[in-house]
Design a protein around this nucleic acid. Sequence first.
DNA 1: TCGCAATCCATTTTT
DNA 2: TGGATTGCGA
Length: 873
Amino acid sequence: MNDTLSAVLKTLNERQYQAVTHNPEIPLQILAGPGSGKTKVLTSRVAYLVQEHKLRPSDICAVTFTNKAASEMRERLNLLIGEEQTKKLRLGTFHALCARFLRQWGKTIGLTDRFTICDADESKKIITNLLKAYDGQLKARRLTLQPGEVLSSISNAKAKGLSSADLFAQAENDIHQIIAELYASYTEALKKMNALDFDDLLVYGVRLYDKEPTLAAWCQHVLVDEFQDTNSMQYRLMLQLAAIHRCVSVVGDPDQSIYGWRAADVGNISAMQKNFTDCKQIMLEHNYRSTGAILGASIAIVSQDTSRIQKALVTDHAQGTKPALLTFAIEQTEANFIAKEIKRLVACSGGMLSWKDFAILLRFNALSRTLEAALQKESIPNRVLAGHKFFERLEIKDILAYLQLIDNPNYVPAFSRAINVPSRSIGEKTIAAVLEAAASREKSPMELLEGIYEGRYPDVKPAVKGKIREFIPLHQQLRTMANEGGAVPDLIRHIITATRYEDHLRKTQPDWDTRWENVQELINYAQQFDQDPEDIVELPSVEGEDGAPETPLRLFLQASMLSTDTESDDDKNKDTNKVVLSTCHAAKGLEWPVVFVPGVEQGIFPFYRNDDVAEERRLLYVACTRAQAFLYVSYCSKRMTAGEIKDRTISDFISKIPADQKKVFDKAAPIVGPKCIEEVAKVLRRDPPDTDIVEKATKEFGSFAPPRENLLDPNANIYKNTIRGPGSHLAFSSSRNTEPATFQPARMAGIASIANPYPTRSSSQPPPPSQSQPQTPHPLMAWASNKPKSASGPKKFRPMPSSSQPPAGATATLSTFQSTSIDSLKAMKNLGATETAGAPDMVALGRGAGTKRLGMGFSAGGYKPPSKRAKQE
DNA sequence: TCGCAATCCATTTTT
DNA sequence: TGGATTGCGA
């Protein structure tokens, strides 16, 4: 066992240690509450298996729920067992692992190795086309059927292992029957174009091991993270992988099961106990993340679920600040409050908290609009987690379509897209004609076009021959390049040159410049991928059944299709100091010192379209348990819904908390004084801020008191009575009635800027004293002096001027690391870490409040929120 | 086939 | 309210 691992083992509590070192031969279930260090345990267990039990990494299969979790695990393991070993692990999502297995052994069940992975968008398009055949029938019966509906029904069926015949047999009405029929024709369509959708990866994976169980012989140990969110196909896969050696470790938390809508089945936890009768269960109930008060409130919420398995959750942390439960008149007020409150906490903490320490967690993405606007208005840098994904952007899909088509000329979605990009005046009609003609000759659409081009086949009805003069030779060239093992970046460059893609973007897209940058980023990604391909470890080969050697192109396409969050492997985003806006779902597994959960209203929590109320409750629980030190739950009495302002009521999840537990929330935002901050520093394991700064700021601020009155009045100046002294001119600007700002000259430049956390946008206000202390800019200066952007100002993210970077050599001290973070592992490894005195490293506050969505992750500059058409088609 | 304008519609979560 | 879809004319 190496030093790093033994150092980590020493940091574990008894239960954690027990879990890590548990006999590998005996199946293990770890039920781990939020913040109980489950990832640490799982990772350490892998390391332990390798180092103590001498398992070969290539014989270990570790499954995560997201790619992000996989790369986080990979990163931790790099430190624990070294990159060399980590690379050999079979680590990834079920989907990614299955893709790998199927490439290798797919022939066993009649798949070709050339299959294309079809993403949800493309699936939807296929369904939309198939649905057309039912137009008349549906209309006649006055029924409507959305493609999305059909798709999710099919997806659900697949996740449960139901065939179209099964679905048909179960059908209770016409709609069900039609869906079952569509399922059948969809399956056939995919088969014809040699494509697998996401669910198919699992379905065929299971089929593979059903047919050939020995193919799992390599697998000495299976580990599954987020086990409560596995669906029945995934569970079956786990069983199959474990069938031979029966060594399994899973980690999960039934309270955090929030993917039922994706056919996840918590029942797998008890199913596992039946399948492995000797299964050992270890509970991790010690929370290292949150204060007692936050845990108390969270438990008060989740324990309303009477069917829930009782589980304790304890913490060593202080009770801390009570979570706030706030009411607002309307969403704008709520959003404005949150923005101001973020600034207040940054100020009151003397800069110990910075933008990146705040998260606003939402039930659904659309709620972010008001908040983005409010943050923007306050010049608070922010980013939307998830949002639009890089690989879903129009310009990226255009290029990918060409690449997919080279790899698989039968893949209709790629064909339909590439053929008319840039526009060759080949529309829907023509494409339909080509597809039909191709089908009748049993050729791929590309083969047919080549035939037409060479005059071997007659042209189709809307003539196409003249329009493909350049397209066909281009395609042939690309195919040759690819077959000869050409590098993907070269292929892409060839595509964009030959199609004059840049011109095309310029002509068709208003924001062509950022799109063009994204294309460049795609090339970069491909380049990087070429040098450092994942999946290099061979799976055992099967006589005569192995897949063809992977071309760089195929590996690239597979990774692209399966990659959702590209940001994780992109370091650029890691150190961005921004407030995070995220859905509650996407926040799973993450934590922040301060968390806001707005919109806790009936209809949103629980979401009105979800029948599974218990799941919605757990979702709120997940959101609340992300918070380390401060938690704000809020709701509005009115909210704009469906274009109309409607009355709203507080969520049952809050109002139905039994009376004796009601005190878990405070009806007002907390008073954040020096003592509170000291406690927070402890919880966050950070150095407390300079008491001088806090004291001075406190004085200037009066009481550090939050707004306490009349939140229900949309025009209320909620800060009016709580901020005194120089701060009093800082009228809270709600939507309309901004009080006239009477400026009081700053007394001392440095302090004034601290005391002025709420700069108004009023034109009567002179510019803040920003240049006053260039040598030692106070942390708070950055935002305090951050001039509001003009209303129509550029939305682009501007990189920080180098002058505001942290001073060279400023390294975080050991104590600032959070105990279980990657950083701390690095720290343990790198014991030479420099200690730096004093100054909190908060200088790097971002300027310019550009919203940057994380999903794209590639270009550091210039992402614009997706425009209407960005969504492509 | 494409671009613009009128119209309609209604707010989820993601591998 | 904004956005997405549909329908029309060039």
